[in-house]
Simulated scan of single mutants.
Amino acid sequence: MTLQRRILILATAVALLAAVCVLAVLRASSRADEKDRARAGGPQITRGEFSLAPGDGGRRIVFRNMAWGPHRDELATVAAGAPEGTRTASGVSCLRFHAAGGTGICLRADRSGVQEGYRAVVLDARLKEVSAHSLGGVPTRARVSPGGHLAAWTVFVGGDSYAGADFSTRTSVLDLRTGRLEASLEDFTILKDGKPYRAADVNFWGVTFTADERAFYATLATGGRTHLVRGDLAARTVTTLRENVECPSLSPDGTRLAFKKRVPGLPAEAPWRLHVLDLASGAETPLGEERSVDDQVVWIDDRTVAYALPGDFGADLYALPADGSGAPARLMDSALAPAFLG
């Protein structure tokens, strides 16, 4: 055996030994992180399987786990009646998520190419991939219709915050029954103040679907103002209803929209307060959360909404009465993008 070959064998052995040592350190570090969280009173997490199907597993919350450790960013679940209980982590990672009617939409990073991108992945009730669609920007909002047949998502194409005016979004709607993808709501006909409207600065975000899965509400921004719109999927139209409504979320009974509203006098970087709009009367009710909420809330039931605020590990979830009474209550630590199922 030549000296050169001996040196090559020795170098290979050293490299393999180094790799084994690094792997051992990483595994030990993960175990230590979990032990540290347990000592600090952080959420307990186990690996397991669960379903998105209605009625399968009782009333529960499925969400993006934000706790540090090996299961960070994975979809996890807890019983709705015990939100601080042990979490079951799925192994499926998402940046944004929503689910209804046995269907999930998962907006995730895509590292399969040379450059990192993003995909919208439709999940079945067992969290298996049904279809995937490339995204042209950074994920920010996701929604599934009550019956599970429609999915919508919004990405930032330019900018990364709704607080200022220097951003651009793209919102898509997918019909899972036909496979038809509306790549951008900007292709829909806009009826503003009863007349067709076109402008180069149009942006949409924050879709919420009606129970019949024929219509939706969303935010339209143009000319420095935001508008609540109602969309008709068959006619491919959106109609403006009122100003200063962002990220609407339709109540389970279909009578109210929870939304964030810009309030004059608040800081430019934190301008919103949560309100609820009664669709029949047009009355707006400010909710009892005094902090600025940059989220599309979800309804826990017809009386309570949930939303995320920044936390020590990225985000925490809070619950709040939807009638303007009461005060916010912390629902879950280290959690984001919840869906209330069952």
Rank of each mutant, 00 (worst) to 15 (best):
R143H: 02
I190D: 07
K192L: 14
V92E: 11
R27G: 13
A319G: 07
S134I: 05
L336Y: 12
A339P: 05
P310M: 10
A28L: 06
R330W: 04
A163M: 02
G164N: 12
C106V: 11
T178M: 00
L107C: 11
D301S: 14
R31S: 08
G81Y: 05
I190S: 01
D316C: 10
N244H: 08
F216H: 06
D36S: 13
P310N: 06
P328C: 05
S93D: 04
T103N: 02
L336V: 00
A200Y: 06
G57R: 02
F167C: 03
M66K: 10
T86V: 11
A89W: 04
Y318H: 15
S145E: 00
T189I: 00
R39S: 14
E182I: 05
A308G: 15
A270Q: 12
T189Q: 13
Q115T: 12
A132Q: 15
A15K: 02
A13H: 10
L52I: 07
S112V: 07
R143W: 01
L185K: 03
E246I: 02
T103D: 04
R96Q: 10
A82Y: 06
V245H: 02
G85K: 06
R5K: 12
L336Q: 10
L277G: 13
L233A: 11
A120S: 11
A76C: 12
P43E: 12
H275E: 14
R59D: 15
A151C: 05
G147N: 13
Y197P: 03
D160Y: 13
D166P: 05
S134N: 07
R143Y: 00
R6I: 04
R170E: 14
G158S: 15
C247I: 01
S30V: 04
R143Q: 10
A329F: 09
R111A: 11
F204E: 10
K195Q: 15
N65K: 01
G148N: 09
D302W: 01
P252M: 08
G194S: 13
N203F: 01
A13W: 11
D323Q: 06
R273C: 08
R64E: 14
L233N: 11
R60T: 01
R198W: 08
S172V: 03
F156M: 10
V130S: 07
F63R: 11
G282T: 14
S29G: 02
S93H: 07
L250I: 10
P271E: 04
G81M: 02
V138E: 14
D175Y: 02
E34Q: 13
P139Y: 08
A24I: 03
